[in-house]
Design a protein around this nucleic acid. Structure first.
Length: 800
RNA sequence: GCGGGUGUGGCGGAAUUGGCAGACGCGCCAGACUUAGGAUCUGGUGUUUUCCACGUGCAGGUUCAAGUCCUGUCACCCGUACCA
């Protein structure tokens, strides 16, 4: 029967709010559970069903934990700085503060209507000056600890957004925000020295519970490799060319060298180089390409030989040519490589194209056809000949290099330092003052927050500078150190800043004396379980781990890692199986579903639709199926009679408690719900159920459909709130049926079943199987070769 | 290319240590109640003509027994992109 979900939802959402049912208490005597979801960016579009799924996973886990007696922290907040809001503000002539407040209010309303058990007393807003004061504070601490620097460099610049982008924000040569083509531009930018934490970020992965794919993505992103730096002499000059290689074992196979087109060697020796015009032309052509175009040309190798400079192989004295080519990047290693065409695919391709010698130094492949990158016996390598594996030859070569002073072992990372700035208004002002005498000086801690000034016009300047640069009263200031005239930094922080530490502020959101009370941090950290999208597992997840590790090193937080466990939800696709988008018209508004079917149906459906971590298409009919299930649950009170446990339902009930309990822990919500549906089907088969049995059903279902369960709990005269009732426990012995069905097989083929006591022994099972008429007739006249009996499962008789 | 993952009915998806493939839901079919059904309830539903047989991308293999283990192969998805 249909029930009045609208009235019920309103009633219980009010009760929960009035009684602060989901507010975490700072009661350090209780066991704690800190569940964290990625806080939303409060966009003007409002919530998406994807948000609902993203928050529903830990919603279930935290509700279960609460019922299990944990002190639960499940907070929510808003990551509200950022470009979309600013662009909307510019376009409509409204202050971003106003837009942000409006959007946050809307999101809050929507989240509450779905009935999430968030702690609404701890909401954080990254654009609140009481919050960003501490974002600036952390930045200054990093500045004081040498982790902030400024450098002039080629940056990814979006001409449309007029903003400098990090490599992470311009992947594929497209701006992450507006998707237009990114160009290269030289600019002074701020950097955070995240590479200093590369090893700690890698090694910390051993101490946390991340799924394999997330761990791999982080490892690849950091990209640590071990190898060697080797110095090659330039012939006839007092000059060396330093290279990085992971394969020092192949040094005898070097037949040429390649340096990046921007390598300083060329500038330094212009006069000696005969074909300098050709090199300049090549370099210019490369500079015009974006990083994306440059990496797109994977197949066709290009380059120019430097006429007038050549190198000397330090291990055998052979003279080798030097080329420039764009397949060598200035930003990795030393911007120069030794090329071993016999054992590196790129070098092989290049050598073939330019007709360079290919010398085999490792046996095992056919270098006439392709580079051989595998292991094998060393040849043509003097003292290395005879070694038969990479590991040993590398070790021997490293000793040799060190002895002769030609090189040394080294480590390289793919990860680069974090470009940490935006030339926009709606972000945290970087709290630095530029003084002519003192240089860069941090704003004194007691002067934080450094507030965003009011401006007339939020548009960035034509040169790409921040709108803050136009406010003289903001820019002109005195140096905190010497009191002389100084200018304020006008860049703001990137959006990743506020989200790099928000989980710490939830622990003590109103503290004005410090980022959060150390005692509270000690109790609540680390976050026990963090769920979010796969799109954030490299950037946000690495950035926030970096900040946290820094704060740990300076003694602000008590745990080396912020998140003990991480999981990720899959996307909700449109009904047509593709990503939901406005232009395709396949977007589902969660509030429409709440209006039509109720919040409990929406909550149940987003978890029932498929495996939590996998993308699944929206299906309105299936939504109705979940509604039907809840309608049937709403009918149950008519069936409740008496108390205690009834024989008919006991094992089904205990099995379901077991299944739902363990499935929730593994985020297998779809099968947990399926088990509850199955239990309801069992209930349909019996005349009546007891109050105690009904109570178990309500408590198991409560995390998924809390409004309905609270209502039925009240009708049943349950004690207190269902959301705070104890999580049901099961008796393992009662999960087993007295009679079990045994599969009967002959020669491995299924031939029927047999009902027998669960305690039946092997002999008894075999006898019973042979007594079955069908089995007996099939065995007639045959010789039994083998008999396999698996108690509780099957009997298989092999006969000829 | 490399790294991670996935292939099961008409659809979304289930299947401890190998042990009755297709749980649960959708859809579909039939029936009931209805003036009506796009509501609700009951029954059925992998393929095939009942038994038999065949069925988890494809081809082999191990085993009494394979969706599950092994070898090879194909397709798709996600991440990454000349990282020396």
């Amino acid at each position: 029967m249909k029930y009045d979900f609208k009235a019920i939802e309103k009633k219980w959402q009010q009760r929960w709010e009035e009684e602060k049912v989901f507010s975490a208490k700072d009661d350090f005597s209780k066991p704690k559970f800190y569940g964290l979801i990625e806080f939303p960016y409060p966009s003007g579009a409002g919530m998406h069903v994807g948000h609902i799924k993203a928050y529903s996973g830990l919603e279930i886990v935290t509700r279960k934990r609460r019922m299990q007696g944990y002190n639960v922290l499940y907070p929510i907040g808003f990551d509200a700085f950022g470009l979309p809001t600013e662009n909307y503000a510019i376009k409509n002539g409204v202050h971003p503060r106003v837009v942000t407040d409006k959007n946050i209010a809307r999101f809050t309303e929507q989240l509450k209507r779905v009935g999430f058990g968030f702690d609404w007393d701890r909401v954080v807003d990254t654009t609140d000056e009481k919050y960003y004061r501490w974002t600036q504070w952390i930045f200054l601490k990093m500045f004081d600890n040498g982790l902030v620097f400024r450098d002039k460099t080629l940056v990814n610049y979006c001409p449309s957004c007029k903003v400098v982008l990090s490599n992470e924000d311009s992947q594929g040569g497209k701006c992450d925000i507006c998707n237009s083509d990114v160009v290269q531009k030289s600019k002074d930018v701020w950097y955070l020295r995240i590479t200093e934490y590369a090893d700690k970020l890698l090694e910390g992965l051993d101490t946390v519970e991340y799924p394999q794919n997330i761990r791999m993505q982080q490892e690849n992103w950091i990209g640590r490799s071990y190898g060697a730096f080797v110095n090659f002499k330039i012939k006839d000059l007092e000059e060396t060319l330093r290279i990085y290689t992971t394969r020092p074992d192949t040094l005898f196979g070097v037949t040429f060298m390649v340096i990046a087109p921007e390598h300083p060697l060329i500038e330094k020796h212009r006069a000696r180089i005969a074909n300098i015009d050709a090199l300049d032309a090549y370099k210019e052509a490369c500079a015009k390409k974006t990083e994306f175009e440059r990496t797109q040309l994977t197949k066709d190798k290009t380059g120019v030989k430097i006429e007038g400079l050549s190198a000397v192989n330090p291990v055998n004295g052979k003279e080798i040519p030097i080329f420039i080519s764009d397949y060598v990047m200035m930003g990795y290693g030393t911007g120069a490589i030794m090329a071993v065409p016999a054992h590196d695919e790129r070098d092989y391709e290049f050598a073939k194209k330019f007709g360079i010698d290919i010398i085999e130094v490792i046996k095992g492949g056919n270098i006439e056809e392709a580079a051989y990158t595998g292991d094998g016996q060393m040849v043509n390598s003097e003292f290395l000949n005879g070694y038969d594996n990479k590991k040993d030859s590398i070790a021997a070569m490293l000793v040799y290099l060190a002895d002769k002073g030609i090189g040394e072992k080294g480590v390289q990372y793919k990860m680069k330092d974090w470009a940490f700035n935006r030339q926009r208004y709606w972000g945290e002002p970087i709290p630095i003052v530029h003084c002519e005498k003192c240089g860069m000086v941090g704003v004194p801690y007691e002067q934080l927050p450094l507030r965003l000034p009011e401006v007339e016009n939020f548009e960035p300047g034509e040169g790409g500078e921040s709108p803050l640069a136009k406010i003289d009263s903001f820019v002109n200031c005195t140096c905190p150190k010497c009191g002389g005239k100084a200018k304020r930094e006008t860049d703001t922080m990137p959006q990743w800043a506020g989200s790099s530490w928000y989980f710490l502020r939830y622990i003590d959101p109103l503290n004005d004396d410090c980022l959060a009370d150390p005692e509270k941090l000690k109790y609540w950290l680390p976050v026990d379980w963090y769920n979010g999208g796969m799109e954030h597992v490299t950037r946000h997840l690495i950035y926030s781990r970096f900040w946290h590790k820094f704060l740990y090193d300076i003694g602000v937080v008590p745990s080396a890692e912020p998140y003990a466990k991480r999981s990720a939800q899959g996307m909700i696709l449109g009904a047509n199986g593709v990503k939901m988008s406005k232009s395709l018209g396949n977007v589902v508004d969660p509030l429409d579903v709440v209006d039509q079917y109720g919040a409990d149906t929406l909550r149940t459906y987003v978890l029932f639709m498929g495996e939590y971590g996998t993308a699944a298409p929206w299906n309105e009919s299936s939504v109705k199926g979940c509604k039907r299930f809840l309608d049937r649950v709403a009918d149950l009170p008519a069936k409740v009679k008496g108390e205690g446990e009834t024989a008919a339902l006991t094992s089904a009930l205990h099995k379901t408690i077991k299944k739902v309990s363990s499935d929730i822990e593994e985020m297998k919500f779809n099968t947990a719900i399926a088990a509850l549906m199955g239990l309801l089907n069992e209930v349909d088969k019996v005349e009546s159920i007891t109050k105690d049995e009904f109570s178990v059903i309500l408590r198991l279902l409560c995390p998924f459909a809390p409004h309905l369960c609270e209502e039925l709990w009240e009708q049943m005269k349950g004690e207190g709130l269902c959301s705070l009732a104890s999580w049901p426990t099961y008796d393992e012995a009662k999960t087993v049926d007295a009679m079990v069905e045994i599969a009967l097989q002959i020669c491995g083929k299924f031939r029927g079943t047999l009902m027998i006591s669960k305690d039946a022994g092997k002999d008894e099972l075999l006898a019973a199987a042979k007594a079955e008429p069908k089995i007996a007739s099939m065995l007639e006249g045959k010789t039994i070769v083998k008999e396999i009996v698996v108690p509780g499962k099957l009997v298989n008789i092999v006969a000829k």
